[in-house]
Amino acid sequence: MKLGIIGAGAVGSAVARLAPEYGHSVVALADSESAAIDPDGLDPEALLARKEDGEALGESDPDEALDAPYDVLVEATPTTLGDAEPGFSHIRRALEGDRHAVLANKGPVAERYEEVRTLETGSRGQVRFEATVAGAIPALSTIADLGAGNVTAIRGVLNGTANFILSRMAAEGLGYEHVLAEAQDLGVAEADPSFDVQGTDAALKCVILANVLAEGNGDGDTAEVGVRESYTLADATVEGIEHVPPSALELAAEDGRTIRLIGEVSTGSIRVGPRLVPEHGTLAVTGTQNILQLEARHAGRLNISGRGAGGPETATAVLADISRLEA
């Protein structure tokens, strides 16, 4: 497949680097400043080395990359809330040109899901977004295999930064500010960590999951009461971890428990907040690990854990989506 990659951050550049190994060529690669375009295929390694040296990616305007002769547009620009721009418009351009769109950007499928699906209906291209939920963890493909209508509830740890902070606080008895600073030094937390520690990032993933589950909700007799057609961030109840003191983690530990930032999706309710979980239980993953726990009819409970962030890790989810487009 020929890939047009918009966004050259950790995920976008990892997709570009791994593309040849997975049998794809990159015909366009754009960051916010410029774009490199070559219908015969670019050399991602050389381009990214240039970018790392502070040079422009290419000679073209970033917008021109959207018109390059790609089969699949990889949308890997930063997640934006509300109108989810410019990501949404990028996807629209791809679909209106009957090309596929594969997303790493959560915004369009969390905030404008119905519109994205409507655009897809009018296009010969498809939209896939495995990378938007829990990085390398095959969340959406597992749901698709089970059948979205058979998945009755999902819960899990969906933000590695918050999980790192809580598990370090519990292990070392240190305060929130102290561990946050440490996480920032390690590159685990961003300079502005609010998206992660206030629960927004986990909530966006839950909203996307709720949208996928809602599609599996049947009509008439089989429809579950209380499930809407689609959801946005405004439908989620979100609480972060900033107010969790070390003393709370200590008291939890005395009782064989710990605190984790848990996201939950069930029958139309979306909720993210710090919760008590058994200290050595399945959901109490440590460090930056993520875990997804699915409740499914007939299948029972399924747990999938792994790396929920990181360039190459998340890029594997994008590449998995691309190979499903070929199938």
């Binding site: 003191p245 070390p246 003393s247 709370a248 200590e250 008291l251 005395e254 009782d255």
Partner: peptide
């Protein structure tokens, strides 16, 4: 009931 008040009675404390 377990109470932990490391900051003294005036500060933030936790109870289980």
């Amino acid at each position: 009931v377990s109470l932990s008040a490391p900051e003294g009675t005036a500060g933030t404390s936790s109870a289980r």
